[in-house]
Amino acid sequence: MAHDDHSAHHVNYLAVFVALCVFTALSVIFDLVSFSNHAITIVLVLAVAVAKALCVMMFFMHLKFEGNWKFVLLAPTTILAIGLPLALLPDIGVAYYTPLAPQAEWRAEMESFHASHAEHGGHTGGIEHLDEHVNPGTPVQDGVTAEPHKESHDEDAVAPAEKAE
């Protein structure tokens, strides 16, 4: 029978399992390491996810050893699946007009709120790339933009600047 043939391929499942564990550890490490740009973290962890997905699909799901029917079955669904986000992207993701979401207005209020909290040494919250948008004229040391929401970094950066003045 056809399905019995697949077990004839001797995959070292334990090795695949170990590889998956190593990949998981890698993505946690990438989360802990603070890169100068958060986008680097995102790209790295997603690359690891793709590698893990390939391991699972090829070996655990046996797709490496299946006939060409796998392409007939999976190509249309993959194309349709990718179609939806691509169709949404131009308007919702990267609109050429001023976004109408109320958050676009609220953001200004939140940024001044986080800024005043940072002054008082309170929690600064998690606005992405805060420093890039508030006060672009303020000189910021390299590496600070990596984690704008970690107050300790902000203070480290601000303190020497104030002393210099």
Partner: peptide
């Protein structure tokens, strides 16, 4: 199922790209 979950994941990625100030902390 691939289309089902990609619809959610894809919508999330698109919304995330279009939402500056997304909470990450």
């Amino acid at each position: 199922e691939i289309m089902f979950f990609t619809a959610f994941i894809g919508a999330y990625i698109v919304l995330r790209i279009g939402s500056p100030g997304w909470p990450t902390d």
